[in-house]
């Protein structure tokens, strides 16, 4: 299988997020970037598929802070090549990025009968998300998102997928390659790579840089403003030593008839 995995860096929401002076974007001075969580699972699923069925894994991402670390880590995990798309990316959302990725695929002549394109199911940082379906439309391929399992049958060149619905229900689907799949969670948690191995990869392998000229990038609707959620009904915060707050909680549980 020829697996392409599309990655994106997003702000780490564990950190404090500050809205910029334009009230339309986040203040980048405050942001720490991490690999989008579902993209990390897509990368893991790509490596698992390579280990099971053979083939190659190519990781591609638009330039962003901390991206090199993420791409070297992808190589250390087992990706064969890593591409960084150079450009000013903070203004692009999923429709624009999908256009750039589809152009990358054309320019590099990546599409083949056994091509599987993976990405994260949904990004947290844009209004559209679901880049996989944009890409499927632009490339004229079948697509499926919220996937948690991918099995490949080389004889039929088909993949079998599990897609999450709701209430714990999942749907099994079958799909012939080439295809675009949005991973919600890989079948195993993303593997840990020791820093020494990543350092070693930095010495032996290179991140390939590429520019993708695209005219007339579609980019959806303009955001009028960003703001923090207005809290009308915030929790009553209990304060004190662990013993004090534990006693307060026990009182509350007792009052509500829970214990």
């Amino acid at each position: 299988m020829n697996i392409l995995v599309l990655l994106k860096m997003v702000p780490d929401v564990v950190e404090e997020l500050k809205i910029g002076d334009d009230f339309k974007s986040l203040d980048r001075d405050w942001l720490r970037f991490i690999l989008s969580e579902s993209d990390e699972h897509a990368l893991e699923q790509a490596i698992i598929l390579k280990e099971k069925y053979g083939g190659t894994v190519t990781a591609v991402a638009p330039d962003a802070p901390e991206l090199d670390d993420a791409l070297y880590s992808a190589l250390a995990k087992g990706a064969d090549r890593a591409f960084k798309i150079i450009g000013e990316w903070d203004i692009y959302r999923s429709p624009g990025l999908a256009k750039v990725f589809s152009r990358f695929i054309e320019i590099n002549n990546i599409m083949g009968e056994q091509t599987l394109i993976l990405s994260g199911s949904q990004a947290i940082d844009d209004l559209e998300g679901e880049i996989v379906y944009y890409l499927a439309e632009f490339l004229g391929l079948p697509g499926c998102c919220v996937v948690t399992s991918v099995q490949y049958n080389p004889d039929s060149n088909c993949i079998t997928l599990l897609k999450e619905f709701s209430g714990g229900l999942r749907g099994e689907f079958e799909l012939s390659l080439p295809a675009v799949i949005g991973i919600q969670a890989a079948e195993n948690p993303p593997r840990y790579i020791p820093i020494a191995k990543i350092r070693n990869i930095m010495k032996t392998q290179k991140i390939e840089e590429i520019e993708i000229p695209v005219e007339g990038i579609p980019n959806g609707l303009t955001i009028e403003k960003l703001f923090e959620p207005e809290v009308t009904d915030r929790a009553e915060i209990l304060e004190g030593t662990p013993e004090e707050v534990a006693r307060k909680l026990v009182e509350i549980f007792s009052d509500k008839g829970i214990i």
Binding site: I124, L127, G129, E130, K225, L226, F227
Partner: peptide, 30 residues
């Protein structure tokens, strides 16, 4: 496409939506 809407309303000839971005930490209005 306006995804992740938590509110949508009609106001003076326009439709205004509020979206939950960044895991619900930030809202946007379009």
């Amino acid at each position: 496409l306006i995804n992740l809407c938590k509110n949508i309303r009609y106001d003076d000839g326009a439709i205004i939506a509020t979206n939950q971005l960044f895991g619900g930490k930030i809202l946007s209005e379009v």
